[in-house]
């Protein structure tokens, strides 16, 4: 089967991996298709083992890992269409980014002339074009993360594995990286497996999630399915917060509050009229009123307290 026309990009069939007495993956089956898929789990859940199996770097104890339609363990060639961004440091310090990327593109099979062009283009796409001739030893953490992403994309793979791409980044850098991840799929058309223990990152960047715990598949599905609209209405105002709460309670509406806004559980149609009247009476400037979505973190708090406590929301 060719690698160009596949829709299901990764397939795990009863995939099991033991390291002596440690079970890293236990009879796991799932499929990953085009888009951004988050693989979520605490340390030791089996995320990195799954990635290594799909890259054909380790042998499964039993079962099958297929990447782009080919048995990952039998085809070194398929890696020419895969990209991998490791979590840990992997960049040589005394080499310029453009030279390093051109070399990595060549190692992925591109001829030297094409490799140099792709290196410059990819560095432009990750926002490092101006810095491309500098030795990478002098780069900031954010710049290094961008080069790590760039080396995973430089050969224009069909599928890319990102292992904790936001690790070590400040909030601004984290947001930029998540935007780059989304752009990688949206504009570049490259599908992604996004490994993380940060639920917020997975929720913001991914279309689908796979949740692993102790080497077992715990959940999988569309992120929107897990974060679907709830029966709660969320109201955010720019002022007169207390007056609005009082006006609502005066009308018999049960209100919960937190630092961000007001929550009204299970409203029927008539509640919206009462909210309107309360807003007018309290003169509270309305910023937002919408059905509230669940966050992934909440879901896992319901499904398994132990698991949720290991993950960072």
């Amino acid at each position: 089967m060719g690698v160009d026309n596949v829709k299901v990009l990764l397939t795990a069939v009863k995939l099991t991996k033991h390291y002596k007495d440690v079970v890293a993956l236990d009879n796991v089956s799932f499929e990953i298709s085009e888009g951004i898929t988050g693989i979520l789990g605490e340390n030791g859940a089996g995320k990195s083992t799954a990635i290594k199996l799909f890259l054909g770097l380790i042998q499964p104890t039993s079962g099958l890992a297929k990447a782009l339609g080919q048995n990952a363990n039998e085809s070194v060639a398929v890696r020419a269409r895969l990209g991998y961004m490791p979590e840990h440091d992997c960049l040589p310090t005394n080499v310029a980014a453009t030279e390093f990327l051109a070399h990595m593109a060549e190692v992925s099979g591109l001829p030297p002339k094409h490799a140099r062009t792709r290196a410059a283009d990819t560095l432009r796409h990750v926002g490092l074009f101006e810095e491309r001739y500098r030795s990478m030893g002098g780069y900031s953490t954010g710049m290094k993360q961008r080069v790590k992403l760039a080396q995973a994309l430089v050969h224009d793979p069909t599928f890319v594995f990102l292992d904790e791409p936001t690790a070590g980044l400040d909030p601004g850098g984290r947001e930029e990286m998540l935007e780059l991840v989304r752009k990688t799929h949206r504009e570049f058309g490259i599908s992604i497996l996004f490994s993380s223990h940060l639920m917020a990152d997975v929720e913001r960047a991914c279309d689908r999630i796979i949740v692993l715990q102790g080497g077992r598949l715990m959940q999988s599905g569309e992120v929107t399915h897990f974060t679907k609209e709830t029966e709660t209405v969320f109201i955010e105002v720019d002022g007169n917060h207390e007056r609005l709460v009082a006006a609502l309670e005066q009308r018999g509406v049960a209100v919960a509050t937190d630092g961000h806004g007001l929550y009204i559980e299970g409203p029927d149609e008539s509640v919206y009229d009462l909210v309107r009247d309360a807003l007018v009476e309290s003169e509270a400037p309305l910023r937002r009123m919408a059905p509230r979505r669940r966050a992934l973190a909440e879901l896992f708090q319901h499904e398994g307290e132990d698991f949720a406590s290991e993950l960072v929301p």
């Binding site: 070194v76 190692v107 992925s108 099979g109 591109l110 001829p111 283009d121 504009e187 570049f188």
Partner: peptide, 19 residues
């Protein structure tokens, strides 16, 4: 914008040569 690569891919032989 981003251009997908449509040029030749020379596989393992090119990888070895590059190393």
């Amino acid at each position: 914008g981003y251009q997908n690569y449509t040029g030749p891919r020379e596989g393992r032989g090119r990888a070895r040569l590059s190393v």
